[in-house]
Write a protein that binds this DNA or RNA. Sequence first.
DNA 1: CCATCTTTGTGCACGCGTTCACAAAGACAT
DNA 2: ATGTCTTTGTGAACGCGTGCACAAAGATGG
Lengths: 259, 259
Amino acid sequence: MATGRAHRPATRSRGIPEATVARLPLYLRALTALSERSVPTVSSEELAAAAGVNSAKLRKDFSYLGSYGTRGVGYDVEYLVYQISRELGLTQDWPVVIVGIGNLGAALANYGGFASRGFRVAALIDADPGMAGKPVAGIPVQHTDELEKIIQDDGVSIGVIATPAGAAQQVCDRLVAAGVTSILNFAPTVLNVPEGVDVRKVDLSIELQILAFHEQRKAGEDAAGDAGVVPPVAARKQQHSTGSADQGPDGDVPAVMPA
Amino acid sequence: MATGRAHRPATRSRGIPEATVARLPLYLRALTALSERSVPTVSSEELAAAAGVNSAKLRKDFSYLGSYGTRGVGYDVEYLVYQISRELGLTQDWPVVIVGIGNLGAALANYGGFASRGFRVAALIDADPGMAGKPVAGIPVQHTDELEKIIQDDGVSIGVIATPAGAAQQVCDRLVAAGVTSILNFAPTVLNVPEGVDVRKVDLSIELQILAFHEQRKAGEDAAGDAGVVPPVAARKQQHSTGSADQGPDGDVPAVMPA
DNA sequence: CCATCTTTGTGCACGCGTTCACAAAGACAT
DNA sequence: ATGTCTTTGTGAACGCGTGCACAAAGATGG
């Protein structure tokens, strides 16, 4: 507390583990809820329970940020909300472009969680000329041709891809070339990006398959593979007709999207 | 091997690492693409590149499944597709219920990736009586009251929650009570479930915040927190008016959903 | 049948993340 | 002011996941 701002005290900025970063939003959410209920302080135990993690883990996570928190009392909610927000970069505004305004893209555009944090939808982009001008979530959809201009004019550094898998890589390349350095990918494809560009993937199909694996296991090992054991070289040929795309196994549809 | 079950060779079922399970769907997708192009075999190197992982990691992953693959040649695509599908439990049908048919729920219902794997949308459920009967993706929406009956009649064990955060826990409890043991949660809430129930979370807000963190770092440490440094105990009070829900920090909206 | 060459399968070491357990720090009561 | 009691912050041990590097396996050619 000494003089205001020993300036970025210990905050060994460099050293925040990735796993910790991934949990900070969780803590922030729990803290915001407490803040709205005007709770002044919380112990690591309470906050950990609210965030669904172990209290030791939470304390260690916070220790990477610095020594906020008072022994015997806990953490000051408001202060911690601020510190985490700052650490996550939420004290500034992040313009975001969403490419691919299908069912999912529209759902994302309507997402209320954008504004509540520092995110702002700078533009909605779709390749379909018929969509151009049509407002979604109060924002007019723009054609893909405008992509580069929008990104440069608004200084967009975060892009969301909600296109079919077949178009994802191409869109990705254009986003990166235009200056985007962080991408949230909803298309079921492995994106190839140059070093320095971060990509995070959200894939419904993968999540379901992981659940199915555990579900099968829970169903018991005894009833091992009895139902529908198809021959190794089964006949599985469908789609691939329209050929709108050239890549993508399960249908070139975005991770979550209509056919 | 003594008693029955000489089947299931070495497949030390128990021992498949979680990290490996999470990658199997990735391999499966790449393999399916190869299969559609009628490629007979692939080397670990090629497949790894297609899946975006390290070849050593891929080989180790496959080693947990057993010794499929021929030295000097590679892996038989069709055979591997089958083996992974079986391991993931995709050779059987998994009826799935989607609860909360808002923008996101509709996008999920329309998702083509469901059927392509062993997943089948058994029912769409929403709490709004006005939605009842209205078809989404060709399936009529049913009211929440039917939830238990549907789950039990169809033997549903996987549920998808796409409701606002305020309703998520309640829906979750009902799903679990009715027999669901795997949940894919799109609502921005920590779900509390009894042991034995798997929960996977998909949260747009968290992903964006993680990207923002890295983005901020890339922007350079020099310009450390200069823009909009708000006072620790800032004034942040809004919403909470309608009180439609009682929980949920950023707006009680599902992970991805309109307000 | 043997030699060579390719590619798998895996033992091993390393690093990250998690958890335990406890000393230090401070609030609070007397 | 002193003692007690609560809760943080962290050193250290452990376990999992990753990547290297290589021996074994088998295909292929002579």
